[in-house]
Design a binder for these strands. Structure first.
Lengths: 110, 110
DNA sequence: TATCAACTCTACGAAAAACGTAGACTCTAG
DNA sequence: CTAGAGTCTACGTTTTTCGTAGAGTTGATA
């Protein structure tokens, strides 16, 4: 049987694996934390990470919450945007206002 | 029969409708543009927008491409992030570098 | 008003996908 | 080698989306 090791498959699975490994959680532990039965927990997470199955959005949201990332992160195709989403959601309200102003300077927006 | 008019239902559907109406496309026209059969085109899009069904990611990607937005946009829960994703993906490579530097100033990253 | 056309929504059975179960595979520690 | 932790997948079942067909809604025009 061919093993994928830690090479990232497609979009959703790759982000999920990244976030899970950053959190230092095993697949079955993560599954239990979002309310999955212990008996099938690792199977579910494994299929999400390898791209065999795609979870409904509600499941993705629970995963994001437990892993401490925005659910949007899971749906970022390129690494640049993924990284940005992580950093942006960590900004304070004041910094968000600053950022909006910064963007306004660079483009003729409103 | 109760009509939802143009009130936005849940996350994915709301974003899709926003993007489609911005593009000035009818549901059936949009469906055809992503390769759906004419006969069921509006039914599919309607169910996505009202949140009755959730499309596979590959379908979402096609919709995003036709509508000229990042697929990530469809999976933004709050309006602030959604708006930001739209504007960020429109940045030039040079502006992206600038933005990264700007963010570095505001947080002890790397 | 009546009627037409454009647009949107939804009930139904068929088709496709994810689901839980159970067990195999890989790797590392003792 | 053995045990255990972690990951993956074939199987049959359940749940979901799918295409079809047609009804509801709105606005314009005669």
């Amino acid at each position: 049987m061919v093993k994928k090791s830690s090479t990232t498959p497609c979009c959703f699975g790759a982000r999920l694996r990244q976030a899970r490994e950053r959190a230092g959680l095993a697949q079955d532990k993560l599954g239990v934390l979002i309310g999955l039965d212990e008996g099938c927990s690792s199977a579910r997470i494994s299929r999400y990470e390898t791209g065999v199955h795609e979870p409904p959005f509600e499941t993705a949201r629970k995963l994001a919450q437990v892993l401490g990332v925005s659910v949007t992160y899971f749906y970022c195709e390129d690494d640049w945007l993924a990284d940005l989403v992580l950093r942006l959601t960590a900004l304070t309200p004041a910094q968000r206002v600053e950022l909006a102003a910064w963007l306004d300077l660079r483009r003729g927006v409103i």
